[in-house]
Design a protein around this nucleic acid. Structure first.
Lengths: 184, 184
DNA sequence: GGACTCATGTAAGCTGTTACATGATTTC
DNA sequence: GAAATCATGTAACAGCTTACATGAGTCC
């Protein structure tokens, strides 16, 4: 599922502009996907050319002109087809865990700062997700994704809190390793 | 941190071939990063040209010739510099959660199958991580990353188990929404 | 007056994947 | 005899990000 398909999906929920879709990526989608204007606007142009979405211009009085897109019947059908064919893959890309993997190469102060930073980012994400969880307009599926994010954030925060002390205390100690022992 | 930097990092742990590094990505790194041969081999060529790693050929008797790379002093320095300058960003890209977000567009059977599939993938990941957790050669940092993966997998498995019934029971029910109510 | 929000787009370029190409050895 | 593991690489392409370019309105 690329950005194009996700824009189509976003418009299946509600008509909107490229700007609106970007907001959706920053808010509801943010825990599991992201996209920049540089991919959203070209995607919308293409979708329109393919007849999967339709565009109307709303002249602005107190704001710039908006190009409001809405999904067509063909577009809705195409999106459902795409959904059904999509495999539930996941991939995490965490520079934080890369840094932790090589923690023995970092100064203690930097390590402590990293943990602080990530902790506060996780906390913020958790708070944002918690604040939108209870909205009555959410479908069960939407609520499931938000809840999944909250569960992950909580577990990761608990884990960091539990490990912090021992990690900083033992930092820079070489691993206990017998001569000739093979790494596993 | 791109694949090139991570190859350099891998060689800071232990000399090895491109094939060995790919194995590291499939095993120890797999929870938080990935890379294919198509990016690893060109990265090694470049790193060698830059003098950050050195290559020797081990003629194979019972296997193909291997190009074994090892990090140079300059390479080790460059890697530490890169590490210190790296921000602890994270991004998840989950097609699974996209599918769940649009669950109301999927048939019930497909939804149930998705949950089964993801559950068994999480369980497998958790088992693999648990099986490598106790190795005495791990640094504290490496153990932290493995533990983080285990904590996340456990939380996500618990969450799916807790939500499954109600999700499938209420599936396809329209969200309770008052006329004129704005989505949030 | 400054910062933030609303609003749309392009172009260059980075990064990485997939598919292809090859072939020996080892394990079941 | 089949499948998996070991081993190296290239080329085409997908896909996305960053930086640039522009400008009005609104809130503090």
């Amino acid at each position: 599922m690329n950005v194009k398909a996700l824009c189509l999906g976003a418009l299946c929920l509600k008509d909107g502009t490229g700007y609106d879709i970007k907001k959706l990526f920053k808010e509801a989608f943010s825990y599991f996907h992201s996209a920049s204007y540089g991919s959203i606007y070209p995607a919308l142009t293409q979708l329109e050319q393919e007849g999967l979405i339709a565009m109307r211009v709303e002249a602005g009085e107190r704001h710039p002109d908006r190009k409001v897109y809405s999904v067509t019947a063909a577009g809705r059908e195409a999106f459902v087809e795409e959904l059904v064919a999509t495999e539930p893959t996941e991939r995490l890309r965490s520079e934080f865990l890369v840094l932790m993997f090589f923690a023995h190469l970092l100064p203690n102060a930097r390590l402590a700062a990293l943990l602080d930073q990530v902790e506060s980012e996780y906390r913020l994400t958790r708070e944002v997700l918690e604040s939108i969880y209870d909205c009555p307009t959410h479908t069960a599926g939407v609520r499931f994704t938000i809840g999944m994010g909250i569960a992950a954030m909580r577990a990761q925060l608990d884990y960091i809190a539990a490990q912090r002390e021992s990690l900083l205390a033992h930092h820079a100690e070489p691993p206990a390793r017998m001569p000739g022992e093979e790494p596993c």
